[in-house]
Design a protein around this nucleic acid. Structure first.
Length: 419
RNA sequence: GCGGGUGUAGCUCAGUCGGUUAGAGCGCCAGAUUGUGGCUCUGGAGGUCGCCGGUUCAAUCCCGGUCACUCGCCCCA
C-alpha cells in the first residue's frame, strides 16, 4: 500500500519555493481585498456533510461523486470542504451575522475534491475566496468582480485572462428557462450525446456548454435565455454591466456560461485563461441569493468568488523573494560563543542571520555564498582581542573592521537582509 | 469515471536491436586553498532502471497488471 514514502494521489508538498509563491498570491489577494473592506476569516476544514450536500445540490458532480466524506467516531457524517462559499454561509448563520450586513469576508485555504488529477487540478488544492453577504444590490456584484480584477491586475495576469459573464436570472426566470430547455432537448433526446442525455436529468443548462459537435448543432436552435429573463432580472444584469463599464472592466457576455452548482442566481462569471491547458478558470463565482435560506438561515442574498491559488501562482510565475542572510563566521571556541550573542542582537533587529555549525573559514564562506548571504561577519581570536569583527560585503568583496557595539548599526546598509 | 502518453542518480535526460561493471550535464561531498566565497582543476559518493508478476538460459529493455505523473474528455478553482 505504501511501498515508498509517496504522497496521496493528487496531493503535493509545498516546499519553501512553492510555498512562497502561494503565500505571495494570498498576500496580494489579502491586501487588495482589504482595501475594499474585506476582513480575513477562516472556517473549519471539515463540516457536516449536509452543509455542502444541501447547498451545492445533491445532483451536482461535486456532491455526488467528489466529496471526501466519512463518518466520524460519533457517527456524524463529516465532509472535507470542497469549496468555501457554503462554509462561510454556514458560519454567517451560526454566528448570527445578519446583524452586521453587508458582511464582507476574505479567506484562503485548502479544499478537497476526489477528482482525477491533472495540471491545475489536484485533490487537495487551495483557494482564495471573497464573499459579500447581505447585499441584494447589483453594486455588490460589481464590487466583487472589481476585487477580482484588481487582484489579477496586481499579480500582472489580468491581460492573460478574459472575464466571461452571464446571468442566470432570478429563480423564476431560471426555472422557466430550465423547463423550456428540458422540453426542447427532450424532443431531440436521441440526437444528444451520451453525456448530454445524462445532463438532461441532472443539470440541463450544462448542455449549452457541451463540446460535442452534435450537441452544438442542437444548442444553436435551443431556446435563448434572454427570452425567459423577466424584466427585473434584465434590469439587474443591466446595472451590473453599467457598473463594470464605469470601471472600464472588460468582459465578454457568454450565454453558455452556466454554473455547476445549484445555488447560483443572476450574475455568473469566470476569469478564464488559455495558458493553463484544460483547467482555464482562475477565478469563478456568482450570486447565490437563495443559499443561506437553503441552509436554514434567514433569507439573505450573497455573492462571491473563489480563485485557484495553484493556477494563479502558475499563471503569474510569482516567486518568493529569496532570503539574503548575514552569515556569521566565527573562528575558534571563544568566537563561537561570541557569535551566539552577535546573532541574537542582529536577529532582534530583524536581520536574517545564517550560521554554519561546522567547517573552517573557507567552507563557511562557501556556505554563506550558497545561502545567498549579502554580508559575512568574520571574527577569530585576533579580532575579538581587539573588540573587532570583519564585515565583508559579499557582493563587492569590500571588507572593513567594526567594533562589537557598532555591529547592528554598521549592518544598516544591508537592510535587504531584514525580514 | 473514460481514452492517449510517460516513468532510468537529488534535478534534466541519454542508453541497452534482451547478454558481464547502466552513462552525461547540473547539483552534492572532499582535496588543490590548515584565517577568506563566487571561477578553475582533481577525486568521490549517489541507481531495487516506479512496483508486482509473466515469457526467457538471461529482462531496465518484450508482455500483463498496478501505482504515479501528464494530455484530452468529464467537471471545475
Amino acid at each position: 500500500m505504501m511501498a515508498k514514502a509517496q504522497p496521496v494521489r493528487g496531493t503535493h508538498d509545498l516546499l519553501p519555493d512553492a510555498f512562497g509563491a502561494h503565500a505571495e498570491v494570498i498576500a496580494t489577494a489579502r491586501r487588495v481585498s482589504a482595501t475594499y473592506g474585506y476582513r480575513e476569516m477562516a472556517t473549519p476544514i471539515f463540516e457536516f456533510t449536509d452543509v455542502f450536500a444541501r447547498s451545492m445540490g445533491e445532483t451536482s458532480d461535486v456532491v455526488s461523486k467528489e466529496m471526501y466524506s466519512f463518518d466520524d467516531r460519533g457517527g456524524e457524517s463529516i465532509t472535507l470542504r470542497p469549496e468555501y462559499t457554503a462554509a462561510i454561509c454556514r458560519a454567517f448563520i451560526s454566528n448570527g451575522l445578519q446583524q452586521s450586513v453587508p458582511f464582507r469576508a476574505f479567506g484562503a485555504g485548502p479544499m478537497f475534491r476526489y477528482e482525477r488529477p491533472q495540471k491545475g487540478r489536484q485533490r487537495q488544492f487551495h483557494q482564495i475566496d471573497v464573499e459579500i453577504i447581505g447585499a441584494p444590490e447589483p453594486a455588490a456584484d460589481v464590487e466583487v468582480i472589481a476585487v477580482g480584477t484588481e487582484i489579477l491586475n496586481t499579480l500582472d495576469v489580468l491581460h492573460k485572462t478574459v472575464l466571461n459573464l452571464n446571468t442566470l436570472g432570478d429563480p423564476e426566470s431560471r426555472d422557466a428557462y430550465r423547463a423550456a430547455l428540458v422540453s426542447y432537448f427532450s424532443d431531440h433526446r436521441d440526437k444528444l450525446s451520451k453525456d448530454s442525455q445524462d445532463r438532461l436529468g441532472r443539470n440541463p443548462l450544462r448542455i449549452l456548454d457541451s463540446k460535442d459537435e452534435g450537441d452544438r448543432k442542437l444548442v444553436a436552435d435551443a431556446p435563448l435565455f434572454g427570452d425567459y429573463l423577466n424584466q427585473q432580472s434584465q434590469d439587474f444584469f443591466g446595472s451590473v454591466l453599467f457598473g463594470l463599464d464605469t470601471l472600464s472592466i472588460a468582459y465578454e457576455i457568454n450565454p453558455r456560461l452556466v454554473r455547476g452548482l445549484d445555488y447560483y442566481t443572476h450574475t455568473a462569471f469566470e476569469f478564464v485563461t488559455d495558458a493553463l491547458g484544460a483547467q482555464g478558470a482562475v477565478i469563478a463565482g456568482g450570486r447565490y441569493d437563495g443559499l443561506i435560506e437553503q441552509l436554514g438561515g434567514p433569507a439573505t442574498p450573497g455573492i462571491g468568488w473563489a480563485g485557484g491559488i495553484e493556477r494563479l501562482a502558475m499563471l503569474s510565475g510569482v516567486t518568493a523573494a529569496a532570503p539574503q542572510p548575514i552569515a556569521l563566521i566565527p573562528i575558534g571556541e571563544a568566537a563561537e560563543t561570541e557569535a551566539l550573542k552577535i546573532g541574537q542582537a542582529l536577529r532582534r533587529e530583524g536581520f536574517i542571520v545564517d550560521q554554519a555549525f561546522r567547517g573552517n573559514l573557507g567552507k563557511r564562506m562557501k556556505r554563506a555564498d550558497k545561502a545567498g548571504a549579502v554580508a559575512a561577519l568574520i571574527f577569530g581570536d585576533d579580532e575579538l582581542a581587539k573588540g573587532l569583527v570583519q564585515v565583508r560585503n559579499l557582493a563587492t568583496g569590500e571588507q572593513t573592521e567594526v567594533t562589537l557595539p557598532q555591529i547592528t548599526t554598521a549592518m544598516a546598509s544591508f537592510s535587504g537582509s531584514r525580514v
